[in-house]
Design a protein around this nucleic acid. Sequence first.
DNA 1: TAGTGGTCTAGACCACAGA
DNA 2: CTGTGGTCTAGACCACTAC
Lengths: 241, 241
Amino acid sequence: MGQVKYIKIADEIRNRITRGHYPPDQAIPDEMSLAKEFGCSRMTMKKALEVLVLEGLLYRKRGHGTFILQSSLQPDQVNVLSGETIGLTASAKGRQVTSQVIAFHVDFPDPEVAKHLSIDQETPVYHILRLRFVDGEPYVMERTYMPSPLITGINEEVLKGSIYQHIQENLGLTISSSHKMIRADKPHELDQKHLACTPDDPILEVEQVVYLSNGTPFEYSFARHRYDKFVFTVINIQRPQ
Amino acid sequence: MGQVKYIKIADEIRNRITRGHYPPDQAIPDEMSLAKEFGCSRMTMKKALEVLVLEGLLYRKRGHGTFILQSSLQPDQVNVLSGETIGLTASAKGRQVTSQVIAFHVDFPDPEVAKHLSIDQETPVYHILRLRFVDGEPYVMERTYMPSPLITGINEEVLKGSIYQHIQENLGLTISSSHKMIRADKPHELDQKHLACTPDDPILEVEQVVYLSNGTPFEYSFARHRYDKFVFTVINIQRPQ
DNA sequence: TAGTGGTCTAGACCACAGA
DNA sequence: CTGTGGTCTAGACCACTAC
């Protein structure tokens, strides 16, 4: 769990909300009361509540109070991916994720790949093509590029499981952010073959660059999803002015 | 512009970054130096930089410094929508947005619409169907539901422009957040007719609930986009632990 | 050891809402 | 007027990085 105080407080309040500890139709206690209860300053309390606002559980109204967003209590359908988690293995919690390696080799990157990975064309890159299953159903086809000098120790064994788990646990690297571009597309032949879809079944494609905590991009990928098995959810909070 | 200090500082630093004021391959000045330059406390400086981190312009490394994310300097293609702006009129800056009203009437909501707008089925709701053009090209078909007692003064004139502008400027309401679900779909007949697409052209659909700053949902909508004219971009920063 | 960002504090003042 | 959240401060200590 979070070793940091504001994360621990946010975790506790999130639990209270989802377990119905606070009446959903009135304000939760004010910042000062909560700060006193949790033995922290008001600023720290504010930071904890800010986490839950960004998750879409709470909204706050100056001069009024902090309230539970009704929609957060409705069991939103499958909710396959949120803006928060990275990686299919982490997203499909409780369901079994398996992977079939279709292609795996090392090559020099083309200019587009090199550009997104911020490397030159002389740096070798893993080319990985995986078909991924959730509970045995074909779910997504992932084409992934990673600089091989940076992400070491990739082999068939790793590819059958979770690359992200390998990066974090075996390589000790920290994943920090991702930039995604989401679009619809027509199915390629490869999609039709492996995702078992017809020529008029659309594909939802997620193009992504993922960064380590030192700012280095380590993954450039295209994930192509069956249109009937994937919804991408995003929560957007406006900044003042 | 932002009347708030940290927003104004963020605006200034954003300008410096995009104009190349800071060398892109080394750290920008540290928090204390910047705080001194802008005449603010270190906490305020941190808050300003946090804004730019969330926008994907900067990344920060404890014990190391604050750096410009290379990818933010590359002129990312069209970048039609980011997680930040709400509303087509605001997204398609510099391009001409026009709207054609296909249907517009008031009715009672079905249970699904009522649920997402947090109203009962006796509250009348605007049903709006608009085709929207960017620079004269058909771009997106929007089906929108809004509670008519809440969003007043909607007429053909407003619908041909920007509803959001009407809500903010004429009604004085503040839009605060949105929850989006993005998926691919096959084109309906209505899509094919108005978006000028063929039966095998996919559609990118954005289902959305938009909230006022008092937490009231005021819009439930489905925006159906031509697959070749819309990319949805999302930036995701991981929280510690 | 020096320098960086991350967290946390105690308190101040401001902006906004409702009685 | 009171109470709410929003901002800002000056300073402390901690965690991590590089030298």
